[in-house]
Design a protein around this nucleic acid. Structure first.
Length: 187
DNA sequence: GTTGCGATAGTCT
DNA sequence: GACTATCGCAACG
């Protein structure tokens, strides 16, 4: 089942935690979400929305369940899903997936990686193998071929919470969520 | 297995 | 004009 807008219309940290174990789908490619980070509106200077409403950050302030895609370091795209009610800023960075379907296509998109379980281990790698680009900025993810679904059969897992990676401001908050011990999380 | 460094372009001051 | 929510490769153990 495709996650409905009500799933995303909650506090960002809850959405970030609950996305673990869900399946991100884009066309023929899909994977289990194993690592996320929350970017909130509560004294979070690392969040892009902290700088206010600009053409780039506009979507983060809009209705939940939409995609926020941006270019990082001039090289890689990063993919977030907007949370919180319309008018409240908040989004979840999807950092890593365990590949599920469309793996052949993912290998073609990252030929140097020999281990399938690492194809999407990191936000830049993930967007590359899933074919996620800024063309998908603002896309409604509650229907269509770019959505998040509940998994079929699920094995129980433990969630680990840590501080976020690769940021320079508000580094101390426990806002990174990952499936404990999973080999597909970023290094 | 680890650490260090350069590439790169969009965004905001 | 400075800054960045990263990656891959090279060098080393």
């Amino acid at each position: 089942m495709t996650l409905p807008r009500s799933f995303y219309e909650r506090r960002t940290v809850e959405v970030a935690r609950d996305l673990l174990g869900m399946v991100l789908v884009h066309g023929p490619c899909s994977g289990v979400i194993v690592e996320t980070e929350a970017y909130t509106n509560e004294g979070d200077l690392a969040a892009h929305s902290a700088a206010g409403l600009t053409p780039r950050t506009k979507v983060i302030f809009g209705p939940p369940g939409h995609a926020y895609v941006y270019l990082s370091y001039g090289v890689h795209e990063c993919f977030n899903i907007v949370a919180e009610p319309d008018g409240v800023a908040g989004c979840v960075l999807i950092r890593a997936l365990e590949p599920l379907t469309g793996i052949e296509l993912m290998r073609q998109r990252r030929p140097a990686e020999k281990r399938d379980y690492r194809l999407a281990s990191g936000p830049g790698n993930l967007t590359r193998v899933m074919g996620i680009t800024r063309e998908l900025y603002g896309r409604d993810m509650t229907r269509g071929d770019f959505v998040v679904e509940t998994p079929g059969a699920t094995e129980p897992f433990d969630v680990t919470v840590t501080t976020r990676i690769g940021i320079t401001k508000t580094v101390d908050l426990p806002l990174r969520f990952l499936i404990r011990g999973h080999r597909s999380v970023s290094r």
